[in-house]
């Protein structure tokens, strides 16, 4: 998995609450049995003029030239709520997004991010508003710098510190494969499995 240490990039604001995974990638854009080919469908309902079409909506933030090459999203609370579809994360990644900064995240979405090297970064709403205001002055020049090992975001000379679970941080920084990591605990899992069979026989 791609490691995440430091990242500096153009930050695009979608400053509203409850951006759901249906909005991030509509179901109709999930056309293949694959984790690939989803970037084009990212935010399709907002990004294109018509449902199913590809004519760009020039008003949508990712289509505006000043936000070209955006690799960070700034958003409202409960980002990624709704459907568990991991396609939302695969689409963001393929488009080139490395981090989403929001006051809170849908729980399944946040887990999916960590399994795919995308950083779900929690900051207070006021901090995000301040960063967005600074970015808006000159989006290509005013790029926030995210430091995951240091748990901070630098923007406009300010340093915003954020919290992240130790396990999630390690997964992202070291680019770990969760399955391989868990398999190193195999003897404990197998022992638990055998004990559970004995204690709760009707489960087996």
């Amino acid at each position: 998995m791609e490691k995440f240490e430091q990242h500096e990039g153009v930050a695009a604001p979608i400053l509203r609450g409850n951006v759901d995974t249906d909005a991030i990638i509509p179901s109709r854009e999930m056309k293949r049995v694959s984790k690939l080919g989803l970037g084009e469908g990212l935010f399709a309902g907002w990004r294109y003029r018509e449902i199913g079409g590809r004519e760009v909506n020039p008003d949508f933030v990712l289509n505006r030239p000043e936000y070209a090459g955006a690799s960070i999203l700034l958003s409202g609370s409960n980002f990624g709520c709704g459907s568990s579809r991991e396609h939302a994360v695969w689409a963001l990644k393929e488009y080139g997004i490395r981090a989403v900064i929001a006051p809170s995240f849908g729980a399944i979405f946040a887990n999916n991010c960590i399994r795919n090297g995308l950083l779900p970064l929690e900051l207070a709403e006021q901090a995000i508003a301040a960063i967005a205001a600074w970015v808006a002055e000159a989006p290509q020049a005013n790029q926030p710098l995210i430091d995951l090992p240091g748990q901070s975001v630098e923007a406009n000379g300010q340093r915003y510190v954020f919290d992240i679970e130790a396990g999630a941080k390690r997964m992202l920084v070291e680019g770990l494969d969760a399955i391989a990591l868990t398999q190193t605990h195999w003897p404990v899992i197998e022992q638990f499995h055998e004990q559970r069979k004995h204690k709760y026989p009707w489960v087996y």
């Binding site: 991991e86 887990n111 399994r115 969760a178 399955i179 868990t182 899992i189």
Partner: peptide, 22 residues
């Protein structure tokens, strides 16, 4: 509870999940 596809793979292979306790 609901999970993503990668988590489903994890559960299929290891019969466990790594979960932050809510």
């Amino acid at each position: 509870w609901g999970i993503g596809s990668s988590e489903a793979e994890h559960a299929l292979v290891t019969k466990t999940l790594r979960v932050k306790r809510p």
